[in-house]
Lab assay of single mutants.
Amino acid sequence: KYTPEEIEKLKELRIKHGNDWATIGAALGRSASSVKDRCR
Rank of each mutant, 00 (worst) to 15 (best):
L28M: 14
L10N: 03
R14L: 13
A27H: 10
I7G: 05
G18L: 02
S34W: 09
A32W: 03
W21L: 03
S31G: 04
A22Q: 12
N19Q: 12
E6S: 02
G18S: 05
G18K: 09
A26H: 10
T23C: 10
H17L: 07
T3I: 01
C39A: 12
K9H: 13
R38N: 13
K16N: 11
I7T: 07
S31N: 07
K36A: 15
A32T: 08
E6P: 01
S31R: 01
I7F: 01
T3F: 08
E12T: 12
K1G: 09
I7D: 15
R38F: 15
R14M: 14
W21E: 11
S33A: 14
R38H: 15
R38D: 14
G29Q: 09
P4K: 14
N19D: 15
G29W: 00
A26L: 10
K9G: 04
S31L: 03
G25I: 00
R38C: 14
R40I: 13
D37Q: 15
P4M: 14
D37M: 13
N19G: 10
E12G: 11
V35H: 02
I7C: 00
S31V: 03
C39N: 02
E5P: 00
T3G: 00
K16L: 11
K16A: 13
D37I: 07
N19C: 13
R38S: 13
E5R: 06
K36Y: 08
Y2D: 08
I24T: 05
G25Y: 00
L28H: 02
N19R: 07
K11H: 10
S33V: 13
K1T: 11
D37E: 15
A22K: 12
S31F: 02
S34K: 00
E8I: 06
C39E: 08
G18R: 07
I24F: 01
R30I: 08
S31C: 09
S31Q: 05
S34L: 03
I24M: 07
K36P: 04
V35M: 01
G18V: 03
E5Q: 10
I15W: 07
A26M: 05
R14D: 01
L13F: 14
N19P: 12
S31K: 03
K1A: 08
R14K: 10
L13E: 02
I15C: 14
K1C: 14
P4V: 13
D37R: 15
D20V: 01
K36D: 08
S33G: 10
G29C: 04
G18P: 10
I24A: 06
L10F: 10
I15N: 15
L28R: 01
G29K: 06
A32V: 11
K9P: 01
E8Y: 01
N19A: 12
I15M: 15
R38Y: 13
A27R: 09
S33I: 08
E5C: 00
D37F: 02
P4D: 11
L10I: 13
T23S: 13
D37C: 07
A26S: 11
A26Q: 15
K9D: 09
G25L: 01
D37G: 04
I24L: 08
A32E: 14
K1I: 13
I15P: 08
C39R: 00
N19W: 02
A22I: 12
R38G: 12
E6G: 01
T3D: 02
S34F: 00
W21N: 07
H17M: 04
K36I: 05
E6R: 01
D20K: 01
K11T: 13
E5A: 12
D20F: 01
E5K: 00
A26N: 10
Y2H: 07
L13S: 10
E5T: 11
R14S: 10
L10R: 02
K1Q: 15
R14V: 11
K11R: 11
Y2N: 07
S34T: 05
S33L: 10
G18D: 11
K16F: 04
L10C: 00
V35S: 03
D37K: 15
S31W: 01
D20W: 06
E6A: 06
H17Q: 01
E12S: 13
R40C: 14
R30T: 09
C39T: 08
R40L: 15
T23M: 11
H17R: 01
G18W: 03
A26C: 07
R38M: 14
V35T: 03
